[in-house]
Design a protein around this nucleic acid. Sequence first.
RNA 1: GCCCCUGUGGCGUAAUUGGUAGCCGCAACGGACUUAAAAUCCGUUGGCCGCGAGGCCGUGCCGGUUCGAGUCCGGCCGGGGGCACCA
Length: 700
Amino acid sequence: WIESNGTQNLPCDARKTCDYTADEWKQATNKEHADFLANCRLAYIAEAPVNWCPELGTVLANEEVSEQEEKGFTVVRRNMRQWMLRITAYADRLLHDLATLEWPESTMEMQRNWIGRSEGAEIDFRVAMGIPSPEEYIIRVFTTRPDTLFGATYMVIAPEHPLVAKITTEERKESVENYIEEVRRKSDLERVDLSREKTGVFTGAYAKNPATGQPIPIWIADYVLMTYGTGAIMAVPGHDERDFEFAQAFGLPIVRVVQASGVEGSEPIVKAYTEEGIAVNSGFISGLYTSEAKQKIVEWLEMQKLGHRAIKYKLRDWLFSRQRFWGEPFPIIFVDEGEGEYPKALSDKMLPVVLPEVESYKPSGTGESPLATIPEWVNTTDPETGLPARRETNTMPQWAGSSWYYLRYLDPANDRELVSNEDEKYWMPVDLYIGGAEHAVTHLLYSRFWHKVLFDLGIVSTKEPFQRMIHQGIVLGENGVKMSKSLGNVVNPDEFISKFGADTLRTYYMFLGPFDAMKPWDSKGITGVYRFLNRIWRIVIGEDNVTDASRLTDIVPSKSLERTLHQTIRKVTEDIDALRFNTAVSAMMILQNAIEDEQEGVPRAVYEILIKLISPFAPHLAEELWQRLGNHDSIFKSSWPQYDDAKTIEDTVTIILQVNGKMRDKLDVPRGMAQQDLERFACESEKVSRYIDGKQIRKV
RNA sequence: GCCCCUGUGGCGUAAUUGGUAGCCGCAACGGACUUAAAAUCCGUUGGCCGCGAGGCCGUGCCGGUUCGAGUCCGGCCGGGGGCACCA
């Protein structure tokens, strides 16, 4: 039951289940789907490499490695027993369903790149010569460019590849072992540093290029990763930059097998040609364009049973266990019913598994979770068989909770199920999710995966958890740099609340700039919003804090005020929908300015609408004014103001007169003036005639 | 190295998506009120030339498309973020 590393591609694949709706799924006849869930072990245990620090006795995250090494600690890569979640089974659906979401394009692009789907072919290379044993070995590679097969002049396998030990010849053994040891000491970050020189070592073995029949040397190099593809590549130095660099460093042959169309290729090869083109020196596919060449060679490989079409993903299965005290414990016990210990899920009745009270949650030092040091907790009994059992001592990562909390919020008091069908159906999906862009490929991908699993289990009815998403921009310090304690540029909102009130702070925060943009805080700018709100207040509240509604009139508003009013209602309504709060505030300021210009006093109807419009921004102010104007119900129970499109239209229009694209004059004319009248007025304009007199008008 | 976003007055920003660049604010300057200050109110405020009418220049830089470019296209420079030897 422990899967070896690198076997993430089980026959089960959620791809085929993409097109089912929740109702279709509910039908038990949906066999494909049921098979998928039955066959695909979505949670499994594997030996996975981690960064192990013996001195600290703990596992480190990638980003912590260099930090601890600088402090003098050693960090080595070591395989450890870990729970994995098979997110790769959902790769295609996670990719495919992005199209149904209203998310920032850049975030979806990041997820697409993270999933990293690429189409190509798997090709089998027979190890042909130099091998120490009479056994026959096949090295399978993945390539996106099967059309360059004739140009494969050597192979490279990852240092962790299982065949390394088997194919290395006696005389190369020492060099190979030294190289592998060298690589093991390198951190991931070091290993992928682009600027460093290519390193590698020859195994002594040769494989047969299935297309040319020629023997090609098999090398080991750390630029090939065990975690992607098959952990082995066919190297085509003529058409891949990394292979080219490597071939140059080790004097391996470079052959050109693709050319830009129409170019005769006899010039010396000075760099890899990675574009598409016409196949040359490629036997039966010579002369074909890349797309046709791919097609043809894959058909041939499939016929010869040497290879086949394949799709690979950059996405890896999710390492889901941590050796920490803090985290959700796994509902798993290990029991031995006579044939060795195996993991077993606890029944619902045994849930929840509760963490024990402990004195210390320090790392155990052995790499096991601190829970492993508490025998009273670890040792238990299998409730079904009564046999002695051992609890899983790893705990879940932080991502576990954030992957489904939104569902629990819908029905928090429910102690029988995750969420009731009724509540789930009513609320889901999350209409608008606001969160930072830093979660683009972690939380936001993990929770999509969990949600899809829950969909497959019939627990949720939507395929996606978050329909619309916006990343709020962070407010930077006054110096334009991210606020941080160490930089001393943190602004404390309490200070501004006590000085100007929460309404002012809220409204100013909305006014600062676009919702999704980073923008610097400006302590001085808040006075503008403070003045604006005070002016609204003072229209009916005197210095003595007594309501004086005498400035409100029942007179019909002037034409121009009415127009501004309806324009403002429309703008604020639309802007709130689109989360353009900054321009909504600006529009209300314009209305306020227009109200103050009104000679006959402030029409009560206009004033009440302004208060309603401002109420989502400055709720305390709006409610207080609403009550003081004699309303007994809350302003938030009143209806949102409606606008009349007809009343937003200006009766005069400003026509801009341009000559050769340059603005020369403007005309204020009644709306609807006839074209020829306009043209006549335009030509009569003194400023315009200065530029057109004596010239021929080509186009009006 | 690759990908994505971004660059507009002294500052935060706006611009009907190709048609008046700078709305709304901040700051600054001038004025009113005041014994004075704060608060409040009125005015000016992209740069240059001009008494004025007005003119020229101007949206990071260089080019292009267009009658017309902040907006579209190509190249460069700066800032932010993401991924990273992904075959």
